[in-house]
Amino acid sequence: MRLDPQVKEKLKKTFSAELSASRNAVRITSSYPFSKEYIDSILARFPEFSGGNVENVVDKQILGGFIIQSGSQMVDLSIRSALHLLQKKLYESV
């Protein structure tokens, strides 16, 4: 595709900015909406997830607790995964 070099350069910048924003974006999944202060207090304990845009997603399926995710990194502290782990341990022992 033929583009005006100036336009192209601008597009490139916007694109990579978008990309890095989405890479750094932090998603917190919880079973009910968290307040801004609450989210900040959580993130204060997870320094590796600070610095990006924060988005709070509500998912009743996780039962309780929360999941923090950014890029390919994830910390899963939901009740659902704890129960899954329990289930696995129970089946393993028989």
Partner: peptide, 21 residues
Amino acid sequence: YATDEIGSVQEVHDGVALVAG
């Protein structure tokens, strides 16, 4: 807590999966 490394499945063929992330 432990930080997990995750990805999501894009394609699966005959015993091979392509995973993003």
